[in-house]
Design a protein around this nucleic acid. Structure first.
Lengths: 213, 213
DNA sequence: TCATGTGAAGAGCTTCACAGCA
DNA sequence: TGCTGTGAAGCTCTTCACATGA
């Protein structure tokens, strides 16, 4: 086992391999080469081999990778070996859509509750996920051993919500609020600031024309 | 003017500066130093200076950056100097939420239409954005000089939708469909695969515990 | 004096080329 | 033979340290 810290870039690609392996296993494919994985993902075969080799020697030289074996390894590496429970904080339009989206599209992750402060939505259901008042967060986080929160509240409420999330024992936040959130050492934040991402994309849409700075 | 290609990492940070500058200008702040921008963004001051210096010398030594001047420069660099028109392809839950989100949270980008094939939603409105049948895409893209599409259709329909998008003249795609989409040379795709991102986050939630590969 | 602008060093990630093994 | 696993080279981006100029 490798004890160096895994590169962020490698960790980002692991779930991509996982999805492809799931498809292959569903179609009874038992062996896959790095070259074939390359065709499916768009990553180079060398990169795929290096990614996997970082965690151990999972392949068979001259043959390829066993799909079931590799999937199990990746599940363990990511930490998806048990059903992983998450919560959504903010049950507005985006939070509701993300809850539905995750429930239907993510086979490994389970939304156990959505939180809000608005009494108009507390008590409602998003598919089978209940919307609960944010004051109940710690109770639910403890009960379901929740490790990750998806944050979709308005900017003004983001920092307050972050405090509640951290106080309830969660230390990983997937932040959709369009603002910088401040967290103590040891809490991991991944920002998905959709306006920011969209604006930076515009750069590439207009990159051909001469730009005068 | 610098004619080297701008690093992707720099382009991703430009809209972050833009948002902060907008806030500062709203509060009548006229000068900002790289140190203060560092406090607001979490990026280092050196990195901010290098990012901006890539496009030109925008600051004043001993003083800092003029907020209005810098905002105008960044707007021109990104290509946001005119109102930028985009379309959303797929008016399901996520597409609807992203349309609302963008309309309300993104001051620089304008959604001119949302497309779908489902007659149950075609003709409806999302705030003031009309849902139009996907066969009308080229007409609308031409009319509004649309350069970017946000793709939120189901995986199975993604590649077909991509073809329609490209045929209508768009060459930048913000892809939320949980699948790899194939595009010709010259078309730029940015993937926001939320299940994948969430799964990779789980890695950091469980990283402390010993992992056996 | 103070904050910007920048070459140089460093860190992290990818690509190359090939050794190693079923 | 064929595909994995891996040191080395290469590239990109970040950090450092300081020269530059209002």
């Amino acid at each position: 086992m490798n004890h160096k810290k895994a590169p962020k870039s490698v960790v980002r690609r692991l779930p991509v391999y996982l999805r492809i392996l799931d498809n292959l296993i569903r179609n009874d494919v038992e062996i896959i080469s790095s070259k074939e994985l390359s065709d499916e993902t768009g990553f180079t075969a060398e990169q795929i081999r290096k990614d996997l080799a970082f965690f151990g020697a999972f392949g068979t030289r001259g043959t390829g990778y066993n799909t079931n074996f590799l999937r199990d390894k990746i599940l363990k590496i990511i930490g998806l070996d048990d059903q992983t429970n998450i919560v959504v904080v903010g049950a507005g339009h985006l939070g509701t859509a993300l809850t539905r989206y995750n429930v239907t599209k993510n086979p490994y992750v389970n939304v156990v509750a959505a939180f809000d402060t608005d009494s108009a939505v507390v008590g409602e259901k998003i598919l089978d996920v209940e919307v609960v008042h944010i004051s109940e967060m710690k109770k639910i986080v403890d009960k379901y051993a929740v490790k990750v929160a998806v944050l979709t509240v308005p900017s003004e409420q983001a920092q307050t919500a972050v405090q509640t999330i951290i106080d309830s024992g969660i230390n990983v936040i997937f932040n959709f609020a369009p603002t910088k959130i401040h967290v103590p050492e040891g809490v991991y934040v991944h920002n998905a600031d959709l306006s920011i991402e969209l604006q930076s994309l515009i750069y590439y849409a207009t990159a051909e024309k001469e730009k005068i700075f």
